[in-house]
Write a protein that binds this DNA or RNA. Structure first.
Lengths: 251, 251
DNA sequence: GGAGAAGTTTGATCCAGCGCAAATTCGTCG
DNA sequence: CGACGAATTTGCGCTGGATCAAACTTCTCC
């Protein structure tokens, strides 16, 4: 599908590889202060900038496939992507959701452990993995930032394991809505979690996040609306009316 | 229970803190070449050794509690520990299993995101977290090692998420047995996975790993034995008779 | 603005895994 | 050895969520 886009490069390590995208301008980058690049000074940033290329990705497009060689890593500038593992018979589990300023790809390892697919149109800043690895090894602060991010991501993954293994459908949906209201509000202008927000994905994807079927997910939302816990102004909009009750349900 | 053992220290950063354990002798450490310490040369190791203390832990003893301040991190020298998150009503999900040479605790963050409990008698090498953080910041190779370990752990956690969200009880048990046969054989002398091995935990804990009840877990094992897939010589011993069939079930 | 496609909701039925309780096996300590 | 306690297995009924199917809603594109 996007074969040429991410084809492994045969250029020597450290050389800027052109993936066809626009040259990165780190100084004016929208996630300059939030992404791992925040650990770098102006000079280092200029070096890293030479390795990066900006790319637009369409909703639904898959950047990397589970198990395939993944010759690139990237920062997300805009949009939302999902990390997916496939089970038997077309079943899928979403194992991570990636927001702007988050990092995607697997440094120091060549196979991608999961598929990465854009859930919305997105913009990302791509690096050749090997070049990035070398750069990271030469810049401890960047690795430190990456380590912290990975530790946070691991904590989040483990909490999600508890949700998947031990929560009921109702608890799962409530937990999900609360987490999304927090992570999505982190996006826009500051402040605490917003009661109303727009989900960047549909029912099937919510189901794939929660380890449920689309029908169960839909039924839970309908029931919560009937009970006045929330409103559903449109397909992707959620308004939490009673946050305290929602938290009580989430457990 | 073990309050004094891990009480936060008020000593200044970088000072060796005595937790009551024996002084670490890194040079003769059983996990010297496998733990993150393998990134250090003799001189660095001597420095780190001054910060570490060896400790014995009894089976069932909890080192850190979910949400509590966790003033220490540690390497596991011997034994097996579990990372646990509690859900409502006494339900528990095991979110990680820690083997010798693995690292426990949360560097660069003060609250422990989960409980850490010994499943067998264990021996660990403990560091004051703040001292360790400082040491790590001064030694990029150590951070690199820690980053790689954390990335691997994240991959494992995400695969476990897929298991918890999308696999049937039968698939869960098969996957579990295969993974355990690999990780446990990594322990002893080299070679591939062993068909027979001893689990370091009982049925309830297997259930807590797989997001099942103890009854369902037991029934699956009994059924697999009846079908000749495996033998159960004793409560904690497993012998996989037909690995190929087991892999086919695991999916 | 209307036809078609895609996504969502709702209904009806089914069954894998849960919950409770009793029986059994295993370990261990006097 | 024997008896107690803990862990595990087994039986049985039930239910939460899955599955199958159909209606409905919302977008898209002409």
């Amino acid at each position: 599908m996007t074969g040429a886009l991410f084809a492994p490069s045969s250029l020597p390590t450290g050389t800027a590889v052109d993936y066809g995208g626009k040259v990165t301008d780190c100084a004016s980058c929208v996630v300059r202060n939030r992404a791992i690049c925040a650990s770098l000074d102006a000079e280092e940033l200029a070096l890293l900038g030479k390795l990066g290329r900006n790319h637009r990705v369409n909703a639904g497009q898959t950047l990397m496939w589970e198990g395939d060689d993944a010759p690139v890593v990237a920062n997300v500038l805009d949009g939302v992507l999902k990390l997916v593992l496939a089970a038997a018979e077309g079943r899928e589990q979403i194992v991570g959701i990636v927001f702007p300023s988050d990092f995607i790809g697997r440094p120091f390892g060549k196979e991608s452990p999961y598929s990465v697919t854009a859930m919305t149109d997105a913009e990302i800043c791509i690096f050749n993995r090997k070049s990035f690895d070398d750069f990271a090894n030469a810049h401890p602060d960047l690795q430190h930032k990456l380590l912290r991010r990975t530790l946070d991501e691991l904590d989040r993954a483990r909490h999600w394991m508890m949700l998947l293994g031990r929560k009921s459908a109702e608890e799962k949906v409530a937990s999900f809505l609360l987490e999304m209201s927090e992570r999505l509000s982190g996006q826009g202008c500051g402040g605490g979690p917003q009661s109303g927000f727009e989900l960047p994905f549909g029912r099937q994807q919510i189901a794939d996040i929660l380890g449920l079927t689309i029908e169960t997910t839909s039924r839970q939302l309908t029931r919560m609306r009937a009970e006045g816990l929330l409103d559903l102004p449109s397909r992707r909009e959620i308004v939490i009316n009673d946050r305290a009750a929602m938290e009580a349900i989430a457990g």
